[in-house]
Structures are given as C-alpha cells and as structure tokens.
Amino acid sequence: MHRQKYRLIIPFLAPALILYGTFVLYPYIQAMYIAFTSWKGLRKAPRFVGLDNFQKLLSDDHFWNALYHNAIYVITLPILTLGLALFLAFMITQKVRFSSFYRVTFFFPQVMSVVAIGILWSFVYHPSIGILNSFLKLIGIGNPPVWLGDPHTALGAIAAVTVWQAAGFYMVIFMAGMQSIPSSYYEAAALDGAKRGDIFFKITLPLLWETTRSALVFIVINAMNMFGITFTMTIGEAGPDLSTDVLSTLLYREAFTHSRFGYSTAIAMAYFIIVMFLSFVLMRLTRRQTIEF
C-alpha cells in the first residue's frame, strides 16, 4: 500500500524538486563557496582565501554604515507601516462611506512596480518642480530640504515611500483577518457599551495576533532588503555620501562596481544569516497561545 503511494508521489514531486535544486539550492551552495574566495567575476577561477572576506567585513566602515541603515528601517518600518495598516483596516471595516473606494486606493501602490514608484517619488521630491516642495513653499516654508540630496533627510524620504507603498498591502491582510472575527463578539461588546478603542484593543488586536505575526516577519525581511527603492531613487549611488546605503545596495556595488564578487558574496552571507536570525527571534518572541474561534 505504502509503496504504491510513493510510486505516485515521486514522479509528481520530482520536476519541482529538480528545478528547485538546480536554480535555488545549487546557486546557494556555490555562493557559499565564492564567499571564501577572492573572485573578480570574470573567467579566471576563484582563489580560495579562507575567512579573509569575513575578517574584512568586520572592519569595513561601509558594511557597518549599511547595516546601521538597515537597522533603522527594521525598527521604524514595522511600527509605521503596520500601525498605519491596522488603523486603516479598522476604520474601513467600521463601515465608513466609500470604504471599497478607499480599499482600492490604498492597495493601489502595491500593484505598481518598485521602479515606477521610485521614479514617481523622485519627481515628488524634486527640489524645484516637485509637488512636495512646491506645497511647502506655498504654505510659507521658504527653504524646504532637498529631500534626496541631503544625507539627513534622504533615508527618511525613502522610508516614507516604503510606508506609503506597503501600508495598503498589510491593510488588506488585516482586513481579511478582521472579517474572519465573528461579529457576535463585537455585538456583545457593543451591548456592554464598549467604545471603539476598547473594541480595537481588546477584541480585534488579540484575535489578529497570528496575522500580525506573519506581517511583522514579512516587513522585517523587506526592511532588510530595500534594494529596488534605494537603487531607483538614488540611482545606484546610494544617496548623498552613502547615506541611504543598505546591505543589498552595498553588495551590489562591491560586485559590479568594484569587481569584488567574493567579498560581495560574503556580505550576502552575513545578510542571509542576519535575516534568518531576525525572523527566528521574531517568531519566538511573538509566540502566544492561539485563540481559536
């Protein structure tokens, strides 16, 4: 009986496993080797250098600079994005007028490509013809910041775009979670005279915990990446004086500008380990007893 089952399962699984092995696992293993070599990304075979690349990593200011920016994103993006998404989701599910219009509008940035968003927002931030600075000048701010040209504002400017882009997506996820909460809880609470705030913090949020957990992991992984938006908004130059450089843009530059593929892959390995570690810690920290309903 069992044998027959496997006879059926294996042929079905094989193509997927072979493709996964060839195009995902094999490159991973190869990358792990390259991280221990000095390779210029050309035809000459990689030269094994042991732990040199990782040693260099620890004393490389550019690496710590990029990691610091990632850390800022990891702390701010989840709070801002998920906070906004929860707020919007809660408001819209409270049967406000035009709620379906709002839902589509807020979700819209999610279906746009990152490159389009980057270019669009570069124009919003444009110092002379941009809508943002034109507005600021209109309300009397004579010398608004050059958002993408000033190291003090460039990182925040990119973070704001990411919040704008991602909030709608998490809003839809939260709305789906909220709609699966039985309305009897809300009705009972309303009968007891609970206010909107109480309903949100005492019913909605606890029952949404599982959704929030996965959303948190998603957004933290995104905050560790940030390649597309950084690359398009600062045109591959990582902002004024590397002020928007993150690990992903650093490793890209190390490989393609400086021809240090070995070192770049070592950064990628460190990046991989950090993301794994963060996801693991987050899942651990947020583990609660699941409430079934």
Binding site: P127, S128, N143, V146, G149
Partner: peptide, 15 residues
C-alpha cells in the same frame, strides 16, 4: 543653484 544636490545629471542640465 538651490536644490542642485537633489537633481540627476539630465535634470540639472535641463535647469
């Protein structure tokens, strides 16, 4: 020029 540092090459050339 104010805002120069926020412009790309073609944008500054256009200004």
């Amino acid at each position: 020029m104010d805002g120069t540092e926020g412009l790309t090459h073609t944008e500054s050339q256009a200004e």
